[in-house]
């Protein structure tokens, strides 16, 4: 008789293979043989995880259809088994899986759609945070303003796609009532995903504004973020965008580099 650890490991690996004979021999039959009991468990596992992916990636599912989605989900679950007790953390590698998935090669925008949906999922479950109180900046010496480093709200994500990913997402919403055609040669999107009052919003932002936020998010100073934005657009209006992103709760904390 194996120890508990060996037993759990053998059980775990039997779920990812077709051969459960090793573990099945240890299962009490009680009217249904061990192999069959393991099969039922495995089937339930795949159905549950497939439904979880379906809940997180409804637009990917709509784009590829039910049959292909179940096939992709099945392959994904095999290669990226759940590693957490929390089901909300399962599935974050789905975008990178899709970018490598041979059967989806002709649909290069799919990974970006998945990234957008994962960002939506994460932002929905992210922690809340108080907005920045501008008065707290009076404590900073004006000579040090360039060295300010801001922190993004936990319920914010930034992503960029070479495709019009927000329109792809929008026309595939259940209540969308319009022309579903999407021109993939349209400009790509820089997206800020926000949660405001419990509602998820996708804001498409200009490349310079995006560069500004990404640089801040990477931990760089305000001075460097401005320089990066000006690099993209010489007319970048810092005044406007700094106020905008404090007001919409994207920049919530600061310190000095």
């Amino acid at each position: 008789m194996p120890g508990l650890r060996e037993l759990q490991q053998a059980f775990g690996s039997s779920l990812g293979s077709d051969d459960a004979s090793e573990i099945a021999a240890l299962v009490c039959a009680n009217g249904l043989n061990g192999n069959r009991r393991i099969q039922i468990y495995r089937n339930n596992l795949f159905v549950t995880l497939t439904d979880t992916l379906r809940a997180v990636y409804p637009v990917v599912e709509k784009l590829v259809g039910d049959g292909f989605f179940r096939f992709a989900a099945h392959e994904f679950i095999h290669h990226y088994p759940s590693r957490h007790g929390n089901l909300h953390l399962f599935g974050h590698e789905f975008a990178s899986f899709l970018s490598e998935f041979a059967a989806a090669k002709g649909h290069a925008y799919l990974p970006d759609v998945a990234r957008l949906e994962w960002a939506q999922h994460e932002v929905y479950h992210a922690a809340d945070h108080a907005y920045l109180e501008p008065q707290s900046l009076t404590a900073i010496d004006p000579d040090c303003y360039e060295s300010l480093r801001f922190t993004l709200h936990p319920a914010r994500r930034l992503l960029h796609s070479a495709y019009p990913v927000v329109r792809i997402w929008a026309v595939n919403q259940p209540d969308f009532d319009g022309d579903q055609m999407v021109d993939l040669s349209a400009p790509g999107d820089c997206v800020l995903v926000l949660r405001i009052n419990g509602e998820i919003e996708f804001h498409t932002v200009a490349p310079a504004e995006y560069r500004f936020l990404v640089t801040i998010h990477e931990g760089d100073t305000l001075g460097r973020a401005v320089a990066a934005a000006l690099d993209k657009d010489r007319d970048f209006d810092l005044n406007h965008f700094l106020v905008k992103h404090v007001q919409n709760g994207t920049l919530v904390e600061f310190d000095l580099a």
């Binding site: 392959e75 799919l110 026309v171 055609m181």
Partner: peptide, 29 residues
């Protein structure tokens, strides 16, 4: 129900959803 792994020949699947409505530009990686 469905205790057999029915995905063995699933490589034959091709996407058949609204992706047909995405046109123009390159869709190849």
């Amino acid at each position: 129900t469905s205790t057999k792994d029915g995905q063995k020949d699933a490589w034959m699947y091709v996407p058949k959803g609204t992706c047909e409505k995405l046109v123009g530009g390159s869709t190849k990686s």
